[in-house]
Computed example of a mutant assay.
Amino acid sequence: MGRNSRRSLVVAALWAVLATTALAGCVRTAPSAPAESWTRNGETVSIDVISTNDGPGHCEWQRARFLQISWPIYSAPEGQPKSAQYVRDPEGVLGQEALRLAFRTGVALPEDAKPTGYERDGTALWLAESDRESTAYLVTEDPRRVEAWPRADPPLGCD
């Protein structure tokens, strides 16, 4: 290989590295927070059944929290997905005003609310038959606090 051919290859390789580096700077690579597992009867439950996580940073959603509940907790009508997503977004970072307004803290549980047995770090999931299509209740003890998380329907995601 001649001297000019080698120089051309080196220049081409340098341009490829520079172009890749420049493009990498334009791509948001912040990972989404990992799904957090819950327990039931002292046993860890698969994140395919229930999980929580912060929103992804690359969408500026990290101040929101997501709760994903799947079968058998949530039973959808025939033909509908057998999972539900509930969100905690008091600051409105998701850009969904209805969800921001529907999130409530310091609420009383509905009379028909029942604990599901699912817990994470001192927080228990409760559901009420009267509004399980729209609300999940997260209850902490010591001190007792109840938050009503609205359901995102359809579930939210970002690219």
Rank of each mutant, 00 (worst) to 15 (best):
P115F: 10
E119S: 06
P81K: 08
S75F: 06
A19T: 15
A108H: 07
W15H: 06
W71F: 15
L109F: 13
A84S: 12
V87M: 03
A13E: 04
V146N: 07
T52I: 13
L67V: 12
A152I: 03
L18T: 14
R144P: 04
S51E: 08
R63M: 08
D121E: 13
A12F: 08
C158P: 04
T123W: 14
G106L: 07
L125Q: 04
R120F: 08
T116F: 02
E141P: 01
P72W: 04
I50N: 00
W61I: 09
A64Y: 01
I50Q: 02
G117H: 06
R120N: 09
F103C: 01
R40M: 12
C158M: 08
G42N: 07
P90I: 14
E129M: 05
P115S: 07
T135S: 03
C26L: 15
N53W: 08
S46D: 12
P115K: 08
R132Y: 02
L94Q: 02
D121T: 12
I47R: 12
T135E: 05
P81N: 08
F103Y: 15
I50M: 05
S75H: 10
V10P: 07
P77E: 12
V107G: 07
E97Q: 11
W149Y: 06
D48V: 06
S8M: 07
A76S: 11
D142T: 09
V27T: 14
R104F: 03
R3M: 01
G2D: 02
G79S: 09
A12T: 14
R63Y: 08
L138H: 03
V27A: 11
E111I: 02
E133A: 15
L94T: 03
R7E: 05
A148T: 00
A84D: 04
A16C: 13
T135F: 02
A108Q: 07
S134V: 10
L109A: 09
S32E: 14
G79R: 04
V10Y: 13
D112F: 15
D54P: 02
E97D: 14
D159R: 04
E129Q: 09
S83Q: 12
I47Y: 03
V139W: 11
R65M: 13
S8G: 10
S46A: 13
Q80Y: 11
L23Q: 09
L127T: 01
V49F: 10
R6Q: 02
Q85N: 09
D121A: 14
T20C: 12
L109W: 10
D89G: 01
G92F: 09
E119I: 06
E60F: 10
L23N: 10
V11Q: 12
P143E: 05
G117M: 07
S134P: 01
P155G: 06
L125D: 01
Q85V: 06
P90C: 06
R6E: 00
R151W: 00
A19C: 13
G2S: 14
N4G: 12
V27R: 08
K114W: 09
T123M: 15
M1F: 04
A124S: 15
V11F: 04
A102D: 14
P90S: 10
G95N: 05
Y137S: 00
R6A: 04
V17L: 11
V10G: 08
L138T: 00
V87T: 11
